[in-house]
Write a protein that binds this DNA or RNA. Sequence first.
DNA 1: TATTTACTAAACTGAGTAGTAAAATTTCTT
DNA 2: AAGAAATTTTACTACTCAGTTTAGTAAATA
Lengths: 206, 206
Amino acid sequence: MNTVRKKSPRQLEKQRQILNAALKVFSEFGFSAASMDAIALAAEVSKPTLYMYFGSKEQLFESMMVAERDVMLEPFEHSSGEMVSDLVDFAWHYADVVMRPEYLSLARLIIGEAQRFPDIGRAYQKAGPDRLLSGIIAYLETQKAKRRLDFDEGELAAQDLWALILSAPRNQALHIPDQPPSTAQIARYLENGLKVFIKAYSTQPE
Amino acid sequence: MNTVRKKSPRQLEKQRQILNAALKVFSEFGFSAASMDAIALAAEVSKPTLYMYFGSKEQLFESMMVAERDVMLEPFEHSSGEMVSDLVDFAWHYADVVMRPEYLSLARLIIGEAQRFPDIGRAYQKAGPDRLLSGIIAYLETQKAKRRLDFDEGELAAQDLWALILSAPRNQALHIPDQPPSTAQIARYLENGLKVFIKAYSTQPE
DNA sequence: TATTTACTAAACTGAGTAGTAAAATTTCTT
DNA sequence: AAGAAATTTTACTACTCAGTTTAGTAAATA
């Protein structure tokens, strides 16, 4: 396996190109049906270059997963610093990440290949859902500290919030990629979910 | 495409054998990576026989999907007749179906191939989640009629119940096939979910 | 200018795979 | 038991694809 020694900006650019192409092709066809020729073509790179940067199809797949996962969750990372004003903002921000077509494609790919790449499934669960869940828990705890919410286990409350808001539209989107729920439909589930959550967990339900 | 004319019990038996093998191999490898040779081997049938019963790989895949889906949902079908005594029973019955390893495998397969087989994704949504949802709605409506529950839209209430009970363990199981949640873990989510649901929807929360 | 580095295009290897053909064999029917 | 139908075995075709090799080119470096 001949790796590149030093990474010039030009090489980093090429690496990005390849990873982007890999995401695109793998997402569309799945691991097995995606061909390295197709990825090379999409990346506008020759096949030997592909193998120079990433030794094999499996390695490319795993590298792509790690890279894309981080890119995907980047916007969420940043927001965890700023203080969200209320649950609605929080929920919408969350929905924006999870319901993005690229995120859904990746999730579909991961679920579909989970049996063949158990490490990737586990890593995704940690870096994706679990991390987002931590964010929710942290937020809910601050609300609990302010006596606005009441619960025993933060994890369960966070799971409930997630489930109430996004379970229905996300599952549907996973099964039917070509008919993603509209913003209005998402809003319907989101508002109802929040209403239920508040009724169950708020100390002063309106 | 040379189909078999009359179906002797022996042929039906063979058909079952093939479909079972197809489920097994497709579930393990996904559509593309599964080979017809492997399926023939698993079914203890020759490859030409495979092609005699099901004209092509895609046809076999689709037939298997339809057949397995129906088998999978059979136990649920029957139970909708008998009157479930309370929500806990109902939830457990539901969890038993959805968290079965074979059901999860099939769901993983469908999600992974949804982009390549949009019809199958749509059909599954209708025959699986949507049908189960109808069952929940029907049950909730009877409770509403008895003034035990209160809600505006049955669909939303049913989605909430589903989400609260099974969203968390199911998602985790989809990502991490080799570590399915234990009965105790399922119970934890289920009991908490029911508690929240009752608090939000019951007319007389305990 | 000479040399190294990164890359490309194209052909090739070797393995696997969907699907078919035909003859041999088993099973069913009469 | 004899003939018909269903199946199997075996072999094959045509193709795809991961990964490699070769021969040559553009650009950076010395």
